[in-house]
Amino acid sequence: MFKRKRKLQNYTHLAVAFHLPAFLTLTVITLGPLLYTLKISFYDYKISSSGSEDVFVGLKNYINMFHDMEFVNSMAKTFLFMLCAVVLEVILGVVLAMALNSITRFRKLFTSLTLIPMMVAPLIIGLMFSFFLNPQFGLYVWLVDTLHLPLPTVLTDSPVLAMIVVILMDVWEWSPYLGLVFLAGLQSISGEYYEAAKVDGASSAQIFQYVTLPLMKPVLVVGILLRAMETFKEFDKPFILTGGGPGNATEVIDIFTYRQAFVSFNFSYAAAICVVLFIILQLCGMMYQKFVMGGEEE
């Protein structure tokens, strides 16, 4: 203990020197702007009214948020999106990981190809799907028609279907990713556990439930938390595909904020929303970090 403390002191000036460039930069280019956001969220920084002198309005922007049905709606939509997308991605991810883990031939090829969806720029994904799903000229409609699949052909007219498409688009992009994360987790489980379980006569379902799942738990939690936080950043794909519509059925919080800031130019209201979003994500981030750091100490 004593020795360790001396070591810490020794390194302090080195640590400062090595950290300084990065943290100085980050402070200037992220903390600064974030504090600026905090500041304007307390002001009436309205630009479309003439002669805009910033007026201090206290918590008005924050209070407005809770009276604004569109804000409440987009928050609800975001959570709905998050819940559905993450659950589907985790299930598919686990299945994919187990499948990849149980094959030996072509595993490398399969993993390489699995990478493709998450590497395509989200903007391109949105465009790709809108072309693919075009109700008149899209490949999807043709497939449904020709193969007589019991699926709806027009997906963007109904609020529910549009939301499902937005969710599936995310699932398309990210479940391969979770699959690979979980695969890494599966591979780190020592074969001894399985042998011991087999010796005890456990069925494969039991092995999954009592051996695989508990040992996978850390990786699962990491995957879930990461995706949950990332879904708060959802913007490009629905922005291009549905533009938040029909109505505001798929208007997730980032699109709503973008609209407030860069279409309606309600900068201070948008800033207040940003602050709230930031706080939510900081809480998630803390959970994540606790988990990652906790894992490290073991």
Binding site: S130, N134, P135, Q136, F137, T153, V154, L155, T156, D157, A162, L241, T242, G245, P246
Partner: peptide
């Protein structure tokens, strides 16, 4: 009108006419 009205703007109108549907 062609299905999927909620995703149509002048852009799609032009295309639908161009494709003769």
């Amino acid at each position: 009108a062609p299905e999927g009205i909620a995703s149509k703007t002048w852009d799609e109108q032009t295309t639908e006419m161009q494709q003769g549907i």
